[in-house]
Amino acid sequence: MKSMSASGGAATPSGAATPSTWRGLAMGRSGGDLAIATLLGLGALATLLFGEAYWLLASQVAITMIFALSVDLLVGYAGIVTLGHAVFFGLGAYTVGIASAHLGWTEPLSGLLLAGLVAAALGGATGVLVLRTKGLGQLMLTMAFASLVYEIANRAKPLTGGADGLQGMVIAPILGLFEFDIFGLTAFLYTLAVLGVVVGLAVLMTRSPYGRSLVGIRENRVRMQAIGTNVQQRLLSIYVVSAALAGIAGALLAQTSQFVGLNVLHFSLSGEILIIVALGGAGRLWGALLGAVVFTLFKDRLSALDPAYWYFWLGLLLAVIVLFAPKGLIGLVDRLLSILQRGEVR
């Protein structure tokens, strides 16, 4: 104990510089980001090496992480609350699904791009309208648009397969080399690679002046307007980016499962992804990523037992988080780390 305090005391002045260098590279203001990033990286590595049975689940987790990131950028950073983001996820899934099943477009990477573009186009079109309103009206519009598209997908049976789902999808090997295998190794590595790119982009974006201006708008819209920010344009642009990322996540789900069901457009998915972001910690990229992992793993375990129990525990967990830990899991990690650090210095 004594030696620890001595070394801790000596390390503090020089040690203080190290985390800030890290922060400069990729992380936010707290140590929680770094801890979670390390943990997630180790988890992915362990799954790759030892968790053969979990590769398929792991690709699901990675897809949920991308979706959660897209929602966190919108809700956590820019402060636009949406109850209909599944519309972009589902549109991305149906885009690659329909392109493959009806048009023979089976190349996966260009499929992702196509899905992102289509989702971005819908994001632009609805974003212009959604962002004209605020508060409850905004929630309602996002919900109404999502319900409308759900209805369309449900009715357009020849194109989407309706309630039976879209079957007959074929996805070509990635880069012409890696075929999707039954163990899900290709799916896992593929989704992981896309996740890596998306996280990289999101980190850069949130640390850029553009990302900071979004936080500024969330915190004080009027002041940002007063200092010359084109608020409406910024919000629309993040709406489009978020839609595109959600579309890519949906496309990944369609490609790795080679099936698209109506549930990708359902309201409950829009609700779930919002829960994931809040669970992890809204407004923190690594929070959303952590939330996606915890949520998907819990759901996999608990809903296998009984859906009613799953709903109960999910509700209880969410209520506890909202009432007692509004900063989410990442807030708890931060607090834990700061307690540990204080203990060490003393």
Binding site: V81, L83, L139, A308, Y311, L314, G315, A319, P326
Partner: peptide, 24 residues
């Protein structure tokens, strides 16, 4: 007076627990 996101999430939590309770 809390922000909209927290209210929405809390009421969703209440809704989920009610669904589970009614089912049981």
């Amino acid at each position: 007076g809390a922000d909209e996101l927290r209210q929405v999430l809390f009421s969703i939590a209440l809704l989920f627990m009610a669904i589970a309770g009614f089912t049981v």
